[in-house]
């Protein structure tokens, strides 16, 4: 609590968050000098999308107190919807490369997929969680956790039953030569994936900080009873939160369809990665999740680069175990305690 900027800057560097971020930046720069700028580019593109999934996860945990293990399935729904919306347009885009329509149609597919995720979120809250909430709020975290696991199994198998197990993928959204950034060639799809993620994160942040509804969501996450007392429609906020977070996951899935073809369990990898992020950043910390996403992405890129691609889950897992032992509230855990600590 110091007003002196230099002192608070030094304090920040000494904190767990400051140390981790500084270390991550140094590691990223060192690896970039050692192996080339593509490390940085890969980290930024992977981190951007991961932050969308992780943000939704953090939001659902922070506001609704649900440890969501079905979040990957909304990512899967995103890929699926985007596939079925985009494939019919593919022929048209091939014939009209370079036109405005060819540039906008993929966006349409991605946005439709995001909206579909939002609708699924509404259904999930209405059919599953609001019913549990009406019945009993005892042991809420455990019960809702079990429900999400069940939901995940149901959604994966529904996909398999209706759409089959084959890979439903596309070659790419945007045609044309890859762009060259810092002497690295990245496909237009990857660039767009990052741009879209950046736009969504910014929009989301503005929404949470400056709008009345955003403030109400933050209020609910900090004290549900307090929110009711001041006249916030609790059920409405919970519904909106679930819907938004599912929409974010579906949006991420749709933007990454060119990398992750749609199949029943496509959501598992982003789910695990997002959980790594959320545990690293501190449960329920939405802005921390954005920073955490880039750190986990860096970790993943570095592991693949220096150790081998079979290890990309091992290293983050070890890190998570270490964090849970030494700093269970996450590296961005604040002095104000969270819901679970009460």
């Amino acid at each position: 609590m110091s007003n002196n900027p230099t002192v608070s800057a030094v304090e920040w560097f000494k904190s767990a968050a400051g140390l981790t971020i500084s270390l991550a930046v140094i590691a990223a720069l060192a690896a970039t000098i050692d192996r080339g700028p593509y490390i940085l580019v890969n980290t930024v593109v992977t981190g951007g999308m991961l932050s969308l999934v992780a943000m939704g996860l953090a939001l659902v945990f922070g506001v609704m107190n649900i440890p969501m293990f079905a979040h990957g399935e909304y990512f899967m729904i995103g890929t699926l919807v985007a596939y079925y919306v985009f494939t019919p347009m593919n022929g048209y885009i091939d014939q009209h490369t370079g036109t405005l329509a060819a540039a906008l149609l993929p966006l349409v597919a991605i946005i439709v997929a995001g909206l579909a995720g939002g609708v699924m979120g509404v259904l999930t809250e209405k059919l599953v969680f609001s019913n549990l909430r009406k019945r009993s709020r005892e042991n809420w975290v455990m019960n809702s956790f079990l429900l999400t696991v069940g939901l995940s199994v149901v959604l994966i198998n529904l996909h398999q039953l209706i759409f089959g197990t084959e890979f439903k993928g596309i070659v790419g959204y945007w045609r044309g030569a890859p762009l060259s950034i810092m002497d690295v060639f990245i496909s237009r799809d990857r660039c767009m994936a990052f741009v879209l993620a950046a736009v969504m994160v910014t929009a989301f942040w503005l929404f949470m900080t400056y709008t009345r509804t955003g403030r109400a969501i933050r209020a609910v996450s900090q004290d549900e009873t307090g929110a009711l007392i001041v006249g916030i429609d609790l059920n409405g906020i919970l519904l909106l939160t679930m819907s938004m977070s599912c929409a974010l996951a579906a949006f991420a899935g749709a933007s990454l369809l060119f990398m992750y073809p749609s199949y029943p369990s496509v959501g598992l990898e982003p789910l695990y990665m997002a959980w790594f992020v959320v545990i690293l950043a501190g449960l329920g910390n939405v802005l921390g999740a954005v920073v955490g996403a880039f750190i986990v992405a860096l970790l993943k890129v570095l592991t693949v680069e220096y150790i081998g691609s079979g290890w990309e889950f091992v290293v983050p897992s070890v890190l998570i175990i270490i964090i849970l032992i030494f700093k269970p509230s996450g590296i961005f855990g604040s002095e104000v305690r969270g819901i679970l600590d009460k």
Binding site: R218, A219, D223, T225, G226, L234
Partner: peptide
């Protein structure tokens, strides 16, 4: 009626636990 609707009617409840928004400033 749920608490938020009661609050809108003009009843304000100051609870014993206070139920403040701990991560927001006084003014917020």
């Amino acid at each position: 009626l749920p608490g938020n609707k009661v609050a809108r009617r003009g009843i304000s409840y100051v609870s014993e636990e206070m139920n403040l928004f701990v991560n927001m400033t006084v003014q917020e």
